[in-house]
């Protein structure tokens, strides 16, 4: 499988943000997927729509692969099933708001917490 296209190379992913205040780690949160059918079409659609409403860069990491949460094909390509542990990485002006909204959506839709 040619996954190099969507999955970002971990080495190049910005882990820290360098600003005037020095290094501030980006926001991240790990969630366990409890939904029986994992993240299939409908939840993926909800997540991508939600992510797209923020300006921050939002990545979803699963199984060592990181994809853009604003990319439906990226999210679907991870094939996230029940029991998976996924991590959201959020970086940008509205990062806190974005992360809160995503976590809320995940729990409201019974996807995971």
């Amino acid at each position: 499988m040619n996954s190099t296209y969507i999955a970002k190379d971990n080495k190049n992913t910005k882990q820290h943000r360098i600003g005037e205040k020095g290094e501030i780690p980006m926001l991240q949160k790990t969630i366990n997927i409890t939904s029986e059918s994992g993240i299939h079409a409908r939840p993926a659609t909800l997540l991508v729509n939600k992510a797209s409403s923020f300006t921050s860069n939002i990545d979803l990491e699963f199984n060592g692969k990181k994809v853009n949460l604003k990319s439906i094909m990226g999210v679907m390509s991870l094939g996230i099933g029940q029991g998976a542990s996924v991590t959201f990485h959020v970086d940008g002006d509205d990062e806190q708001e974005a992360l809160d909204a995503i976590v809320e959506l995940m729990s409201k839709e019974g996807l995971g917490a």
């Binding site: 296209y5 079409a41 729509n49 604003k70 990319s71 439906i72 094909m73």
Partner: peptide
Amino acid sequence: EEKAAIFSAHLLVLQDPEF
């Protein structure tokens, strides 16, 4: 609604930045 959700996913493909 269930079947319509597929087309919501199709709409997102159209604006998928990675695509």
